[in-house]
Amino acid sequence: MWNVMGIFGIYIMFFRELIPESWPVDITVMPSSIEIKMGEDCKALSFPPEVMVVPPSCRGLQYVPGDGLHMRLLFQADLNTKSLPAVGESLKPKKRCTFYCQSCGESIISNQTFLRVLPLPSEDWNDLVDEWCCHPNPFNNSILQPQNGDCFLGPNYFLVNSGTESACSGSEILNTDSQGAASKSSDSALNSKANSRIICKRCKTLLGEIMLSGATKYYFTELLVQPSEENFTLAPRSAHIQRTLAHALTELSSTRSTFRFSIQGTDGATYILIWLLNSDTFLVESAGNMASSNVFTLLEFGMSSDSRPSEIWKAVKLLYHPCIKSRNKELIDAWGNDAGVRTLTFPSHTCLEMLLILSQSNISLPPSLRWMNSFQVAFLKM
Rank of each mutant, 00 (worst) to 15 (best):
V53F: 04
K184A: 03
H70G: 00
R327T: 10
H135C: 05
A269G: 08
G6D: 14
T244D: 02
Q145D: 06
F346L: 15
S262H: 01
A235Q: 15
T176C: 11
N191W: 06
G265D: 04
E251K: 12
A287H: 04
M372K: 11
V160Y: 05
P65K: 08
T221P: 00
F8M: 10
N175M: 11
S359H: 07
I312V: 13
R260S: 14
S374F: 05
E300P: 05
S254V: 05
A235W: 01
L159A: 06
S22D: 07
Y157T: 14
R260H: 09
L174S: 15
D187L: 06
I10Q: 10
C97Q: 11
D78S: 12
I263L: 14
E106F: 01
C351H: 12
L190R: 14
I19G: 00
H240W: 04
L115Y: 04
E311T: 08
E40D: 12
S183W: 03
L207E: 03
R59N: 11
I34E: 08
G336M: 03
S292G: 06
N373I: 03
R260D: 11
E353I: 01
L299G: 15
F301P: 00
T205Y: 03
Q147Y: 02
L369E: 12
M52W: 04
N195I: 00
P93C: 07
A315I: 08
S188L: 12
S304T: 10
L319R: 05
V225P: 07
A235R: 14
H240I: 01
